[in-house]
Design a binder for these strands. Sequence first.
RNA 1: GCCCGGGUGGCGGAAUUGGUAGACGCUGCGGACUUAAAAUCCGUUUUGAGAAAUCAAGUGCGGGUUCAAGUCCCGCCCCGGGCACCA
Length: 816
Amino acid sequence: MDEKYNPESIERKARQFWDDNHIFEVDEDPEKDKFYCLTMFPYPSGKLHMGHVRVFTINDVIARYQRMRGKHVLQPMGWDAFGMPAENAAIQRGVPPAEWTYKNIAEMRLQLKRLGFGYDWTREVTTCKPEYYRWEQWLFTRLFEKGLVYRKNAIVNWDPVDQTVLANEQVIDGRGWRSDALVERREIPQWFMKITSYADELLEQLDALPGWPDSVKTMQRNWIGRSEGVELSFDVKDHDQPLSVFTTRPDTLMGVTYMAVAAEHPLAKKAAQQSPEIAEFIEACKKTDAQEATLETMEKKGMALGISAVHPISGDDVPLWVANFVLMTYGTGAVMAVPGHDQRDHEFAKKYGLPIRQVVRPADGSEIDIDESAFVEHGVLVNSAAFDDLNFEQAFDAIAEHFEASGRGRRRVNYRLRDWGVSRQRYWGTPIPIVYCDDCEAVAVPENQLPVVLPENVSVTGAGSPLKQMPEFYETDCPQCGKPAKRETDTFDTFVESSWYFSRYACPDSDTAMLDEREAYWLPVDQYTGGVEHAILHLLYARFFQKLMRDEGLSSANEPFTNLLTQGMVLKDGAKMSKAKGNTVDPQALIERYGADTVRLFMMFAAPPEQALEWSDDGVQGAFRFLKRFWVAVQEYASNGVIHNLNTGALDDGQKQLRRKTHQTISKVSDDVGRRYTFNTAVAASMELLNAVNRFEDASDQGQAVVGEALQAVVLLLSPIVPHICQELWRVLGHDSALVFEKWPSVDESALVKSTVELVVQVNGKLRGRIAVEADADNDEIAELALADENVQKFIAGQAIRKTIVVPGRLVNIVV
RNA sequence: GCCCGGGUGGCGGAAUUGGUAGACGCUGCGGACUUAAAAUCCGUUUUGAGAAAUCAAGUGCGGGUUCAAGUCCCGCCCCGGGCACCA
């Protein structure tokens, strides 16, 4: 007997067994019930961090559990290998991004193996390899032909000192992270994918995702932001183009007292030619970064343009303003302002002394002071001439019809969602497969010339993309006319790679198509696990790509992820672990000291997966201590000889009680792991059962048989979480077969039956006593017993009983 | 600013459908074993009062609904995530 728990050797042995027998490599067997269990793949930053350990452990537990439930489980792993950190490393250390990335992947792969995750490594996908990204280039060219991608100007953060485009992350308090220069907004041409063409489907199919958390679906709904409104146009004096605006509140049209346009709007530019003050204001508007949070929180400023529009109904003059919070790239670049019924317009009007007009009153007739604050609710129209006394819906329709009849407007559905800008002015990414020709303009690279390979041997300086300095990359011939032409030097947003990798795992080696018939076997993903920080962007883009791939005939699935689990962050001292804060804990050191099982157990025990997890060194110690107790308990039991002759009909009360605990635990852990994903309570319940075994002293044959059943249950129940130690203990319990081939234990309902139950007795909702009653006692008997309790008597003495509530199996409440 | 979460002992958390608040673990304290330490084991640990039985208070704050509220409703405060070029 091996009395000391030695994780190092136990874990090496278990890993060896899984590897040698290719346990986690799976084929496409149509006879088997597939289960595709996936985590969001990691960026290869160099070392695993605790967040990785957490999410991969959660997924491995689900995968191993489903395997024990008889599913044919695919759990793949790969690398989201393009991105900024590789460029930063290159700038700082002079290592080419490719070299740095491949080295990191090699290190992280070793760490993942050491943690015992059951991956099918034959399907590993690495997004920075041409075999991978050539297919997204191919899909892009197909979308180009279909008109689902297009080029237009868009705003970027421009660092005027480093002469480079900055990511939002690289802008700190409006300044460039390296140069400290004030960042400017700059418009440059970029490629877009028409995600808005799929807005309605992306919205509606959220209802077909019962396996997603409501919070994520709500966030996506709000992000897509479907709204019904009216687009209408205002004539502009001394200008031949009318100004069109979109509003969801046409009922407030008569309350329009001014209009505001973006700094980049043609009308603003026109006014600037006459006025140096306006020109100066427009310049000042550009001196801010492009983040929404900045725009929403900055001081709202504006300036009158000296131009007027004509109110389309009253014919009144409506002054035009330029305002810093209106963006040219959103909507029409102009808004109508109704300070009486919009809070932002109200504040702006107050600040610049613009008139505020009430055109809606509360439907309940209550008094409001429109000068004090805007009345933004729906109500009844006033001061609106022919539209007076109409409610919101009537006014909406009447005004929409008025404009439709005169051809000056139309009902429209508008989305907050904007098309996806996929261009990045960076080196370490997938080259956008476009060639610019003076005659033919933008031309997609033909299929037989794909992939456009990213050169890997470069030096990165931080001032612009190296591709722009490489004629050997960008000089080419036009695929259409053959004349000299230039390649696009921008690369794709890395969200493009992460929008379809889950499908590629099904057929990672397919070199004749993006996806092949194996996709149909594995997709959609049954269980997807990843950080809640991806609730909107990544998950929306992946859903969009799924629809693009479906419409391209590559897949028949509408949605890529059937069930979604969003896990919380790992914190230390209440804050996200980061190098900057100096509060990181290296998983590697812990694995070496305690073994993978201890780290896995702590991760699963410390918090439910969706919550933030507070790191605790002492908690890791506790997990290790539990595994030692577990090890010793099984060894001690086995050293007395394993008993197999459990006779459930011949048990005494104590034996029955332990056996009931065993089956209650199987029932609870099955629910916690299989349905609720509350692994922390599953571990707690298993600990309780082991504690019960350790307290149980009964050397009789049946006593030991009951102990054996309990220990065997704990080994099976904990095996998805701590697979190495369980693999070994299963052998100790006398089994020849390997644990990975075992089925999940089942509950013996007859073991759960109890003849008496304890009920709580309350008086006026306060706990006053406990009574034991027969399990089948009726409510009158229960009430009688409750009243007879000595302590209960004290609290009801001399008072009339008004009501008695009996909740079967739970409590009695006596109201006096 | 907007959208989505969260707030329970000294700490991480439990309480699954409105029904015993604090399971399980950690820490602390007391004890056993040991020459000693580590490891291990036993007891104890929401606060206040009490020898105890037991009583009172208690789930961020203020109200409300209910026989009964950590859980539902209304109004706040604080913390975290996302806000379209971090991944």
